[in-house]
Design a protein around this nucleic acid. Sequence first.
RNA 1: GGAGAGAUGGCUGAGUGGUCGAAAGCGCUCCCCUGCUAAGGGAGUAUACGUUAAUAGCGUAUCGAGGGUUCGAAUCCCUCUCUCUCCGCCA
Length: 426
Amino acid sequence: MIDPKLLRGDTAMVAANLARRGFAFDADAYLALEEKRKQLQVDTEALRGERNQSAKSIGQAKAKGEDIEPLLTAVNDLGERLETAESALQTVQSDLQAIELGLPNLLDDDVPNGASEEDNVEVRRWGEPREFDFDVKDHIELGAGVDGLDFDAASRISGARFAVMRGGLARLQRALIQFMLDTHVAEHDYTETYVPYLVQAHALLGTGNLPKFEADLFKTTTETPFYLIPTAEVPLTNLGRDRIFEADELPLKFAAHTPCFRSEAGSHGQDTRGMIRQHQFEKVELVNLATSAQSEELHEAMTQAAETVLQRLELPYRVITLCAGDIGFSAAKTYDIEVWLPGQQRYREISSCSNCRDFQARRMKGRVRSADTGKPELIHTLNGSGVAAGRALIAVMENYQQADGSIAVPGVLKRYMGGLEAVSAA
RNA sequence: GGAGAGAUGGCUGAGUGGUCGAAAGCGCUCCCCUGCUAAGGGAGUAUACGUUAAUAGCGUAUCGAGGGUUCGAAUCCCUCUCUCUCCGCCA
């Protein structure tokens, strides 16, 4: 949520900022509603004050043994007036809240303008795409060749956008996950964390996935519905929910491996072949809970941490800053890391590192007791993929392919592969 | 799944219809005293929202959540959630 005080006090600035995203914010309608809220709230609170006063004097009169009948008649219609005022106020407040929950985060000043991914700005590149002296295969062909990636089997079980993996390939994905977690824990000071894969609506409201993006989520039909997490960002970030941290507890840095579940509604026709875009995929996620003073630096460090993984795997990549039209709902600023895929001859997203500032914290009531003032203030939340394991597997397959169709095991993964040098057909 | 107990401020813990936002203790902050890493005395110490130039006042809300009864609810009633104990079941 955007700070309601800011929204109210500097509506034009907020509207202009949101307009950069292509988000049309009806400031006039909002201000009219807000004006109404203010009046209703003042009225309601005055009535409540009146009621409290009379109740108090009735209590005092009764204590003195006086006749309270006349006092009771005097407040006769108060209850009804109050009830009317309260319900009107409640209606307006929930309308306002619906508007506020639907507004995306304010953009950081250094988010570039732009309408689509075409306008994202490259920050840096690392590594050189490898030169092949044979015809390059994509991961689908390679996976079939080593008899490890089976989309037909998956579709018989679950339909489109699922994969079955076997043997060395399945193990390679597990090796990637282990390697990533070990790296972040040992070198980047992350705490390995295990979290629920099913969460309730309020957790998703906190991260900004709800109420606007329900269609992207899988939901159970149980009496109290659960949602399958679309990313470990949801449970990890909610570790800060309803808490007041001491200043010296922050930053907290959590790393978790989880499967991620996405309905991919609205992505029909995109990446339908292969394992790029699935309903279920594995990811190692990084989340930081921080003070406002820490978040900017941590954002850079988190991006570096994700880059480290790719560097150790010797996978060429580039880092881009997402433009205003491409950045996510809850983020103030996002770096995407795109890995080189020889099979597609282009860079594809493998990590997304965002600073959400206090946007999610406000929804979650995540706070920290300021070291200076002793007062609670909102924490900053950051999340990043460190990195997507399914896509990392694709990247390793395509970048490490050999002329005979086998896949060489990257050096850093060998210890996780039982000394295996290459994944090939059994 | 069955039976029972419970949920109060940073913590412990009183409080069963009326000046209770809430006793007391602990912790923390400030002051005083004390020639010293002790003890004692005093004051203060929740959050959100509204109003406001104001982190000053004033008002409103909050004692797990939601609803109800009442002029008035931490206290009574209903529903739900969570925690604990015992039993059952189970990876």
